[in-house]
Amino acid sequence: MAPERRWRSPEMLKHVFAAMALSTVLLAPVLVRAADEIPLPRQEWSFEGVFGTYDLASLQRGFQVYKEVCSVCHPVKHLYFRNLAEIGYNEDEVKAIAAGYQVTDGPNDEGQMYQRPGRPSDPVPGPFPNDQAARAANNGALPPDQSLIVKARPGGPNYVYAILTGYKEAPEGFKMLEGMNYNEFFAGHQIAMPPPLSDNSVTFADGTPATVPQMAHDVTSFLTWAAEPNLDDRHRIGFKVIMFLIVAAGVFYAAKRKIWAPIH
């Protein structure tokens, strides 16, 4: 049995070491960067892991939190009302949600821009017409777009959750700038955003108690979906692909052994 024997040879061990070394190169930048940040508290997310999927009830609650709280300052530029069908709203509900917004359309035949109720094909309108208006209304700070925020921050959902729940009294002697808030997990600990959530900021239709951790969890789930709407498909297809490849690898390995048998 030639292959087994080769695994034990010092040369083969070195090859294994080489493979490990190269994978270290792959991992190094990430490992190193994680070390110089405050560890984020890890949350349980339904979308983690190979079989992870979004929890639609949580996404809908999260959308409600976004709509009633976050959307006062933050846009979700890459979301369309039609996308809400993917988190379990039916056609009529999506139409009703869209119609609840006024969007600017035009120009009409008179050359004027006009307001009309939103349609499912419209992007979700942001709170400000442009970044300058957003800064003017927020003490000079620009509330970032939320539709990619989970992918745009190291730590992803754990980071967003940590920021939402990380407000504290500034420690003794910590110098705060005018209008800033102390947050444990924000770089430099001074964040322009005031604590956005307090208990019962919203009332959930399904009776879930609207505690700060609950709302933070739900809205973070919603924002994860907003950043990565195809995650369910990706996980499902990936599982099939990997199963197929494992079987194929087994078949090809057996074929290889058989074909090479006269040479070994």
């Binding site: 494992i246 194929a248 690898a249 090809f252 290889k256 074909i259």
Partner: peptide, 12 residues
């Protein structure tokens, strides 16, 4: 066949 097996492992 040896390359094909290697390819499959890589694709995994």
């Amino acid at each position: 066949i040896k390359d094909l097996f290697g390819l499959t492992v890589f694709l995994l």
